[in-house]
Simulated assay, not measured.
Amino acid sequence: MMETQISELERDIIKEILNIGLARAADSFAAIAKDKVLLKVPDIQLIEVKELLELVAQYEDTHVIIQSDIKGDFNGATLMLFSDDHIVRLSEVCLSMVDVQKGELSVMQESLLLEISNIITGALVTQLANILKANIYGSPPKAPKSHIADSLKDILVQHPLFQPLVFTVITRFTHNSRSVELPLLLFFDTKTFITIIDIIRTFDLGKNNLMETD
């Protein structure tokens, strides 16, 4: 297994880049949620494929999972995990629905989840592309009907050395002072991760490059 080394500083830079992207995503999401939204990256971890699949499998029975693939110079995906409670809350806030039933998603509710995923992934990808000068784009989000492992196989199988870099992002949005957290997993394959590290290592860290992209 290839070991990928990442220093504390590089970890912090990646977190900062993602946080800039998430700040943009939060602004866009706030327009739908009609209130302020806070998105942040509390944790970055390198994990094995098996662990990744186990992690995602834990959510499968209890959450609706929306997947957006990241393509172009980078290879990766975002997964947004929506519990029944999240869906009820989002339906009330964003769709002005009342007495929302848990269980089967309506077409409108599924569209809303796809739209939220699209906004957040799109904003992240745009910022990553700007800061890292990379040609990347997000594919339209989908709600995999089969096991998520099957739908992730494209990323996993093509890369036998795949050691995904997983960012757990806690998306918190507050509406009328009630807070809802949405887990978001963002991951890249090893080759992409090495590319990102190489790009970061070319930055002149004496200057605050990250902010100059605004």
Rank of each mutant, 00 (worst) to 15 (best):
T4C: 09
T4V: 15
T4P: 05
S7M: 09
E8Q: 11
E8L: 10
K15N: 00
K15T: 00
E16G: 00
I17P: 00
I17W: 01
L18K: 07
L18V: 07
I20A: 01
L22S: 06
L22Y: 13
A23W: 00
A23T: 05
R24L: 05
A25Y: 05
A25M: 10
A26L: 05
D27T: 15
S28L: 13
F29D: 05
F29S: 02
A33I: 09
A33Y: 07
D35R: 04
V37Q: 02
L38I: 09
L39E: 02
P42Y: 06
P42I: 08
I44H: 02
I44Y: 02
I44A: 00
I44K: 01
E48V: 03
V49G: 03
K50R: 08
E51Q: 13
E54Q: 14
E54W: 09
L55N: 07
V56P: 01
V56C: 03
Q58I: 15
Q58L: 15
Q58R: 14
Y59M: 14
Y59I: 11
D61F: 11
H63Y: 11
V64W: 12
V64T: 15
V64H: 15
I65L: 13
I66A: 03
Q67K: 15
Q67H: 11
Q67R: 15
S68H: 10
D69H: 10
G72P: 12
F74Q: 03
N75T: 15
L79S: 01
M80G: 01
F82Y: 14
D84M: 08
D84K: 03
I87D: 02
V88S: 07
S91D: 13
E92W: 01
C94W: 03
C94E: 04
L95P: 03
L95N: 05
V98A: 05
V100C: 09
V100M: 12
Q101Y: 10
K102G: 13
G103I: 06
E104G: 04
E104D: 05
E110N: 08
S111I: 11
L113D: 02
E115W: 13
I120M: 07
I120A: 00
L124S: 03
T126F: 07
T126Y: 09
A129P: 10
L132C: 08
N135W: 10
N135K: 15
I136A: 09
S139R: 13
P141E: 13
K142P: 01
A143E: 07
H147W: 11
I148K: 04
D150I: 14
K153R: 12
V157W: 08
H159L: 08
F162R: 07
P164G: 07
P164Y: 05
V166P: 00
I170G: 00
T171A: 09
T171K: 02
T171M: 06
T171R: 03
R172C: 04
N176Q: 12
N176T: 03
S177D: 14
R178M: 10
R178T: 09
S179C: 05
S179H: 13
E181R: 12
L182D: 01
L182V: 15
P183A: 04
D189S: 11
D189L: 11
K191M: 07
K191T: 11
K191I: 13
I194S: 00
I194M: 06
T195W: 09
T195C: 05
I197V: 14
I197S: 04
I197R: 08
I199N: 02
I199Y: 03
R201I: 04
T202W: 09
L205E: 06
G206I: 14
K207E: 14
N208R: 02
N208G: 04
N209L: 15
N209Y: 12
N209D: 09
L210Q: 10
E212D: 04
D214L: 14
